[in-house]
Amino acid sequence: MVTALTRFGTLSGWGKEHHNDGYQNFKEVPTWDLHNATYNSPYIQFSDKEVQNHDFQPLDKFDADEQAIIDKYNPQAKWPWLYINGQYAQSGSGYSPGLLQAQPWDDVYKQLSSGTQNEATQAINDEAKLITTYICRSTGGQPESACK
């Protein structure tokens, strides 16, 4: 998702995170911390809500519109959940967290940045391509650099 978002704007203030060791029987899975991130784009708005922290304590609250969307399209409250412009919704991860488990965050980041081809980077890039396509349908194919 982050890779896709950077094609439409600038994401800053993000941090490094990981899922709890043993969650769903996976070892630590590196991920992004977008809790304090800001996103600027002339094409789209982005809202990230972290439901709970590592100790299962609630983190972010939803506004009324977000609540209505979740109640309507995600009634079983499956998380992670992605919703794009009333056109697409995705429940769960787009690829198995097992592909990234036990890998240091920096290693995965370097592999992605350098264009290294392995199962994990291919899965991430395929997912980014899919999300980019969804967003492009919402922006009417803008910008061309992302949607061509």
Partner: peptide, 24 residues
């Protein structure tokens, strides 16, 4: 519990809080 509560009409956002408590 989450599936049952959803079945009896609990909303998604309510279930998020329930799920957090259930996890805990």
């Amino acid at each position: 519990a989450p599936a049952l509560l959803s079945f009896v009409g609990f909303s998604g956002t309510t279930l998020l809080n329930v799920n957090a408590t259930l996890h805990e």
